[in-house]
């Protein structure tokens, strides 16, 4: 199922928007113009991820060294602070087994969406998630 989140201009880089559709709550992030959608429900106890702060990814090859990059691409759960990679939904502490579901998100032309009878303006770009 496709869901139109809103005009691109309303979700500027670094921001996020919570959408509810098809019984799901999904949070859509704009990372420098690319859009990513995650299940809003934290896989731990269900904390609302859209309320979580974002930060960069800190890694360390050796105690005392801090490599910090990808600023803004990690969301921390607002409750127990588990870190999730916004691009993949994978947790940092156990990326293989613990993740929040991620959904495809993309930008589509209003003109293309018009055919599907969403109320859109032709001249604008829209963020669309595939649920």
């Amino acid at each position: 199922m496709r869901h139109v989140v809103g005009p691109v201009a309303e979700i500027p880089p670094g921001s996020r928007r919570l959408v509810e559709a098809g019984g799901k709550r999904v949070v859509v992030f704009n990372l420098d113009g690319a859009f990513f959608a995650l299940n809003d429900r934290c896989p731990h106890q269900g904390g609302p991820l859209h309320k979580g702060p974002v930060m960069g990814l800190v890694e360390s090859a050796c105690p005392g060294e801090y490599r910090y990059d990808r600023r803004g691409e990690i969301v921390r759960c607002p409750w127990h602070a588990w870190e999730f990679d916004i691009r993949t939904g994978r947790s940092r502490f156990d990326p293989r087994r613990v993740k929040t579901r991620s959904f495809p998100a993309c930008i589509e032309k209003g003109a293309d969406l018009q055919a599907e009878t969403f109320p859109v303006r032709v001249e604008e770009d829209y963020v669309v998630v595939e649920l």
Binding site: G46, W79, H80, A81
Partner: peptide, 10 residues
């Protein structure tokens, strides 16, 4: 507090 436990899931 941040280490809050949700009664349904905890």
């Amino acid at each position: 507090h941040w280490d809050f436990d949700d009664p349904r899931t905890a």
